[in-house]
């Protein structure tokens, strides 16, 4: 629980002076190496599952930047996830972009919408802001779903990019691993940079942050755009992974998935998105496989987490590590 011990676990503590959360390269490297080995040796199906988890880990981590650190709640984050995939698809099908350019366009489209919607949403605070994010999401979904001449409607867009870029699953898995690792490290840098300090300050006490000269709106807007951008990276990867895009990707279910992952992972902890994605996807797959009423199972687990262990899996991991790990 000591801040500044440099691992990928973090506490809910307020920013402190001399708050140097440097990246623990040893941990990152070992995770990456382990994951690479897993990707190479596993059968394709496990590789697919790993790819999915990695993509959602990035999406949830991007959402977590808002939820845990900037003091905002987004009820429509699937928009930025899905628009990444739509940005990729539409730039290729409608603007004849080459695939490489389309891949860059995806996250930028997300960031652009993050900027536009963000400008609206940061005008408000707390639950009103959250409601506005929901409204923005509903409008976006309606447009994507109904304007089928352009977006393909509910049968979506496919065929614009070869599934997994035509790579072998493990090769694509390695690509995703690289992108997701770099992106999550960048998010880490954001959270623990001077900018991140400001974001957290605003998130925890806007009035005091304002007294220090940090306007809430502009800081939250920056966080919103960053979060939208990285959600878009995840969405673009997801679009390439499946080789298609559907309105579901911007829909409420993906939003709820993200929220539940973060809460399950443990609010106010950087690792929430990563832990949450792993456990949620595992649960989701297992429960649905063995039990027709899988939503009931997930609902009950969420209730238990909220009531019994609000710090989620991250809190659990912290407790275990502090018990068995070296005492300091």
């Amino acid at each position: 629980m000591t801040p500044g011990d440099g691992t990928l676990r973090d506490s809910a503590s307020a920013p402190k002076r001399g708050d140097t959360y440097s990246i623990n390269w040893r941990l990152v490297l070992s995770v990456v190496v382990l994951q690479s080995i897993l990707l190479v040796v596993s059968p394709p199906l496990v590789v697919f599952a790993l790819i999915e988890v990695m993509i959602f880990a990035l999406y949830a981590s991007a959402l977590n930047l808002l939820l845990s650190f900037s003091g905002m709640v987004s009820f429509g984050h699937a928009v930025y996830f899905g628009l990444g995939a739509y940005g990729l698809a539409l730039s290729i099908t409608h603007f004849d972009f080459p695939i490489a350019l389309g891949i860059i366009a995806g996250p930028l489209v997300s960031a652009f919408f993050g900027l536009v919607y963000g400008i609206l949403c940061v005008q408000l605070t707390a639950i009103y802001a959250a409601m506005l994010t929901l409204a923005c999401a509903e409008v976006t979904f309606a447009v994507v779903f109904q304007w089928f001449d352009v977006t393909g409607g509910d049968s979506g867009i496919s065929g614009h990019v070869p599934t997994m870029l035509g790579l072998e699953p493990y090769q694509f898995g390695l690509v995703v691993l690289c992108v997701v690792t770099v992106a999550i490290l960048m998010l880490w840098r954001v959270v623990y940079s001077p900018l991140g300090l400001t974001i957290r300050a605003v998130g925890q006490n806007p009035a005091r942050a304002a007294a220090l000269g940090h306007g809430r709106k502009s800081v939250q807007l920056i966080a919103f755009v960053i979060s939208a951008f990285f959600s878009g990276v995840a969405g673009t990867l997801f679009g390439i992974f499946h080789g298609n895009v559907f309105p579901d990707y911007v829909g409420i279910l993906f939003t709820v998935d993200g929220l539940l992952m973060v809460v399950l992972g443990g609010l106010y902890s950087f690792g929430a998105g990563i832990y949450g994605a792993i456990v949620y996807k595992l649960l989701d797959n297992l429960a649905a496989h063995y039990f027709e009423y899988w939503q009931l199972v997930i609902g009950c687990i969420i209730v238990i987490v909220v009531l019994v262990s609000p710090s989620g899996i991250a809190g659990l991991v912290r407790r275990i590590v502090s018990r068995i790990g070296p005492r300091r």
Partner: peptide
């Protein structure tokens, strides 16, 4: 059942 799921499975069948 739904168009979107059909369209998502279609290329897998092809592949």
């Amino acid at each position: 059942c739904s168009s979107s799921v059909f369209m998502a499975i279609n290329p897998i069948s092809q592949q």
